[in-house]
Amino acid sequence: MKYCSIASGSNGNCYYLAKGEDAILIDIGINTKHVEIRMARLGIDPASIKAIFITHEHTDHIRGLSVFSKRYQIPVYITPGSYEGSRLHMPEHLIHLIPPNAQVHIGKLKVMGIPKFHDAKEPCSFVVTDGKVNVSIMTDLGRGCDNVKHVIQHSDVLLLESNFDEQLLENGRYSYFLKNRIRSGWGHISNTTALELFLENRKPRLKHLILGHLSGENNTVELVNELFRPHCDEIVFSIATRYEETEMFEIDEHKQIKVVSVAKHVQTTLVYSETIIYTSSM
């Protein structure tokens, strides 16, 4: 399976997964122009996408959905609550309403919905599998519920939210209401909570940890790296950001991971054992 982050952060999220000719997106929270630019840098043909799966209706997950889906006539899989909350009016033939725990087959891929706690109408995360490898996209987690723990325990590749640093949030400029919304158990998880979930539930099968959905206001790549890197000596570790796409990774049936495509403007800047952090040369 191939996978990458096209965008990850509180201002926009989009993730690509593929098996052979079967390719999907999870969320499309940046505008279509930027999706197309980032795909082009990785050699992805937008017309090759077979389906788009939406986790929930917040703008940073659906901003580019309507234009992209209609331009390339790509079906959208979304829960009824998320579709209602999105206030989008999509062509009927492109919308497929699914329950939060749906299992949808897209060619060789099976996409499994994972219900979760988040302040949206009917949110879910997704695990994508080819029957041998599980790639899990777990962001916008109000808390580490049993579903989240179960997914971590059965992931070969895990993209996990690490949204905010507690001190930056507490001392930052956000309103008291917004701070409480973020840390209420229905918003997002902190760096510390993400680390606890990772350490308590990781299994030997986990080969690649990607931290994502970092807050632009209340987190930094440096803080996340410093916290997690000492615990990732035996796995590939990377941080997905809002500013650029990651490299395209591939994991084979033997659970070996390699980089198969590198965006022209991205350079690898830090390597610690098998720990890799990707940053921009721009």
Rank of each mutant, 00 (worst) to 15 (best):
M1N: 09
Y3W: 15
Y3A: 14
G9P: 03
S10R: 08
G12D: 02
L17T: 11
A18L: 13
E21W: 06
E21M: 11
D22N: 14
G29H: 04
H34N: 14
R41E: 15
I44L: 13
I49S: 04
H56W: 01
T59S: 06
D60V: 01
I62A: 01
I62K: 04
R63L: 11
L65C: 03
V67K: 11
V76Q: 00
Y77K: 03
I78V: 08
T79V: 06
E84T: 06
G85Q: 02
P99M: 02
I106H: 01
L109P: 01
P115C: 00
P115W: 00
F117K: 08
H118S: 03
K121V: 04
E122F: 10
E122L: 05
P123V: 03
S125E: 02
V127C: 09
G131H: 07
G131Y: 03
G131Q: 05
V135P: 05
T139D: 10
D140F: 07
L141P: 06
K149F: 13
K149L: 09
I152M: 05
S155F: 02
D156A: 08
D156L: 02
D156T: 09
L160V: 14
L160I: 14
S162C: 14
F164M: 12
N171E: 10
Y174P: 01
Y174W: 14
F177L: 13
K179L: 07
K179N: 09
N180F: 05
W186M: 07
S190M: 10
S190Y: 08
N191K: 12
T193L: 06
A194V: 08
K203I: 12
P204Y: 10
L206S: 03
H208D: 07
H208E: 13
H208N: 05
L209S: 05
L211A: 06
G212N: 09
E217N: 15
T220V: 13
V221W: 09
N225A: 12
E226K: 12
E226F: 12
E226W: 09
R229I: 05
P230V: 12
D233V: 10
A240F: 12
R242M: 13
M248S: 13
D252Y: 05
K255P: 09
K255S: 11
V262D: 06
K264V: 14
L270F: 15
S273H: 15
Y278K: 13
